[in-house]
Amino acid sequence: MGWTFKAHGAFAYALGAILLVLTALGRLPDRALPVRPATGFPAWPTTAILALLVPTILSALIRAYLAPADHRTTWLAFRCLPVKVQLALGAALLAGIALLAPNLMTSPTNGHHDWLAVPGLLYTGAAYSILATGELRRADSGPAHA
C-alpha cells in the first residue's frame, strides 16, 4: 500500500476518533467541551475538524470509485489489513454506534453533543474505504510492489 493511502487513512481515522472522544466526553457531567454553550455552535477545533469532513470523504469516494472492485472484494482487502488496524476501525465503529444508539431510542437532550458522533462515524467509514482501496491497489500491483 502506498504511503498516501496510509497517511490519508490515518488522518481520517484520527479525526473520527477525536470526534468520538469529544462525544463520549460530552456525556460526562461537568465536562468542558470545545463547543460554545450559548449557541451550541462548535468552537474552532471542532469547526476545523468538521470543515475537513467534506474534502476527506470526497477524496475517499473518488479513490474507491477509481478502484475496480465490488463490495466483496473490498471486504476481502480489508481483511488483508493488519489485525490491529481492523480492530481499531471496528472499535471506532462500535463506539460510534453505541454513542448514537441512545439518541435513536429517545429524543436528544440539550446537554449532550451526540451529534459529533455522526461525522466521527463518517470519518471512520472514510478510513475503512481508503485503507481497503490502498490494499486493493497493492494487491493489483503484483508481488514486486508488495
Rank of each mutant, 00 (worst) to 15 (best):
M105G: 04
A43H: 08
G90C: 02
R138A: 13
L122Y: 05
I62G: 13
R36F: 06
A43W: 14
A95T: 10
P29I: 09
G90M: 07
L81S: 11
D70A: 12
L66E: 13
N103Q: 06
T109F: 05
L19Y: 00
L81N: 07
W115G: 05
G90W: 03
L136S: 06
W3M: 11
N103T: 09
I49N: 01
A92T: 06
T39P: 09
C80Y: 03
A95N: 07
W3H: 11
R63D: 11
P108L: 02
A48M: 11
G111R: 14
A92K: 10
L15M: 10
V118D: 01
V118Y: 09
T74E: 14
F41E: 15
R27L: 09
A67P: 00
H8E: 10
L53I: 01
G134E: 06
A144Y: 08
A117L: 00
V35F: 14
A67V: 12
T39F: 10
R63S: 13
L58G: 08
P34E: 07
A64F: 07
A69E: 14
W3G: 04
G120F: 02
I57H: 11
N110E: 12
T74C: 02
I62P: 02
G16R: 00
S107W: 05
G96C: 01
G125Q: 02
L94S: 07
A146F: 05
I57T: 13
A10S: 11
A92I: 05
A48P: 01
L15W: 02
Y123N: 03
R31Q: 12
A43C: 06
T73N: 03
S141D: 13
V85F: 01
G40I: 07
V35E: 10
T47P: 01
P119S: 00
R138F: 03
F41N: 12
V83S: 11
E135K: 14
G9K: 02
A144W: 11
H145L: 13
T74R: 15
G134H: 08
A32S: 10
T23A: 02
A51P: 12
T74V: 05
P45T: 05
P55G: 08
L81K: 09
G96I: 03
G142M: 08
F11G: 09
D30R: 06
A14D: 08
T23R: 00
R36M: 08
A12M: 08
L19Q: 03
T4C: 02
T109S: 12
L53S: 12
P55Y: 04
L66I: 04
A64H: 11
L122M: 08
L136M: 12
G40Q: 13
K84T: 10
A127V: 02
A88S: 14
I130C: 02
A64D: 13
L94F: 10
K6H: 14
T39G: 10
D114V: 03
F41D: 13
I130K: 02
A38D: 15
L15K: 05
A88V: 06
